[in-house]
Each structure stands twice: as C-alpha cells, then as structure tokens.
Design a protein around this nucleic acid. Structure first.
Ligand SMILES: [Mn+2]
Ligand SMILES: [Mn+2]
Ligand SMILES: [Zn+2]
Ligand SMILES: [Zn+2]
Lengths: 142, 142
DNA sequence: AGCATATTTAGAATGATTCTAATTCCTTGT
DNA sequence: ACAAGGAATTAGAATCATTCTAAATATGCT
C-alpha cells in the first residue's frame, strides 16, 4: 500500500522533526483525515477511528489532532463558534461554508491572490497568515 | 449631543424596521460599542454597560448583541475558539489579530478587493459573504 | 384600564475543549 | 535483557462562553 506507507512515512518524519513520537493513535487519526477530507470535527474523527482502534479515547483524539496541527500536517478550521474542523489539505486554500448543508469546501487559491490580499495591509502590519472564509450556497452537480 | 441622537435614531430606525422595540438596554449596549471600538467581548460590553445601567444582566447583553447583529448594525467576529467579539464598523473591512497583544485591528478593504477574492470561486459557488482574517504582529507607532 | 406581546432577568443547562492524575508505552543507557 | 525516565494515552472532572428556561417587567394597543 504505497500511499499508506507514504503518508505514514511523511507523518513519522514530521513528528520526529518536532521531537515527537510516531504512535498508532497518531497514525490512525491522520489516516482518518486523509481518507475522507470533509473537514470532520473531533467527534467525527473519534467515531471514524473507533472501528480501527476501539480503545482510543476522545482525549487522545484531541491530543493527536493538536499534535498534527503543530506539525503543520493539518489545519484547524473554525466557523463562528461551531466545533473546530480539521483539514489535511496543505495547499493554500480558502474555505466555503455552505449554509444550507453545513458542508465545507476547499477553494484553491491561485498564487498571487494571497499577496493581493496582503497588499491591503498598512506597512506596520506584518501578517504571518491570512484566512479567507466564504459563506453561501454551493450548487453541487448531480 | 448630535452624534448620540444620530446613533440613537439610526438604532431605533433599524430596530423598528425589523419589528423590534427600541429599549434602554439596546441603546446602552450600542452606545458602548460605538464609544470604544476595540472589538470587546460580551463580558467586556457587560462591564462597560454596568456603570451606566447597574441592573443590566449578562443575558440581556447577549440578547442585545444578537439583536444588533441581526439588524446589521454590528458584526460578530471570531478568532479561533475565543469569545465572540463585536464590531460596529459597517464599512467593508478585514480583521488583523495581533498575536502578541491580542488586539484586533480593522483593515479597510478598497472597493474591488472583495470582488477579486470572490473571483477565485468556481461558478457553482454563490458566496453571500466573505471574511478575511490576518494574524501576525502589528507595529503601533509610539 | 386591560390584554397581548416583547423584553429582561437570574440561574440552570449545554457542549466543545482542556485539565488532572493515573497508567501504559517507548527509548535509552547499563 | 533490565531498569529508569520521559512521552503518550486514558477516563473522568473541570472550564467557560453561550444558550435555555421560566418567571417578572415593560410596552404598545384597543
Ligand atoms: Mn472563523
Ligand atoms: Mn475565525
Ligand atoms: Zn480545507
Ligand atoms: Zn471590525
């Protein structure tokens, strides 16, 4: 299973780069995120990990997700005050939140758009990151 | 006090447009937001309203803020999972969250920038709103 | 005035997340 | 192989912003 070893390898690498250990829990959590990229909540991830690892705890899911975010393998995404959602898409992208369905869509950002957006900042503002969130209605084709 | 009557009038107008009543509590909350535009939390607003209206309750502060947001007189702003902040700036603007100080700054958006950003959306995505959040360090002059 | 409805209020409940403290798991050195 | 020390996991308690509930007030209207 090439893609699995690849992601496992990448994960193990990133973890050890940060002085952290590769654990079965962290690998399962990460694989769950890669398998279905629909921006699940921690509870969603917990439910999806359970069948593969019945003894995993919700606290561990929170711990692992936080670890993956710190390693820059996963982005945490928030809409209003809803539960945090997790996204393994590392390309620069915005999020579109469908108010009808609650679904979250990735919107890839062409190079240059982020720079354009950052150009609105006065010189004394030094932005480490920019986040763009759309809200509206998405027409998914049949 | 021209600006006070103006904002009171605007508030009363917007409220009755929505079939809602102008109340002393709603006026105090709105005036608190206009007086110091530093994106206070509900608790902050509560603390600032108390001296002017000692019997006001926190539940009412939440209720009034929600009402003002529904009337489009105030924007609710969220950073990560922190408490919601409230902003009476109605011009199109982004938010810059200073990670050192925790301060929130309004960044006015020139006409056209929002359109540019919306242009990255595929045709089947219909955005009702766009939110832009910067995170970083702000150099406020002495 | 009398009634219906809107609003306010105090306090309880909620829910996502974090914390605590105990256990288990690894890694490393002997 | 063994032991020690630190890292990670776990269950359950605690936190905290917000929402809900139910009762008391205020307001607008006939
Ligand atoms: Mn958000
Ligand atoms: Mn946010
Ligand atoms: Zn995403
Ligand atoms: Zn603002």
């Amino acid at each position: 299973m090439v893609s699995n070893s690849d992601s496992s390898g990448a994960l193990a690498q990133r973890l050890s780069d940060s002085g952290l250990r590769s654990t079965p829990q962290r690998e399962v959590i990460y694989s769950v995120l890669l398998k279905k990229r629909d921006h699940p909540t921690a509870e969603d991830v917990f439910a999806r990990a359970k069948p593969e690892m019945p003894m995993i705890s919700l606290a561990t899911v929170y711990n692992c997700l936080e670890t993956l975010v710190q390693c820059n393998l996963v982005r945490a995404v928030n809409f209003e005050r809803g539960p945090t959602r997790y996204c393994p898409n590392l390309r620069p992208h915005a999020h579109f939140h469908d108010e009808q369905t609650g679904a979250t869509h990735d919107i890839d950002l062409p190079a240059g758009v982020l720079d354009q957006v950052k150009s609105v900042l006065p010189v004394n503002f030094d932005a480490a990151s920019v986040e763009i969130i759309f809200r509206g209605k998405a027409r998914t084709e049949t």
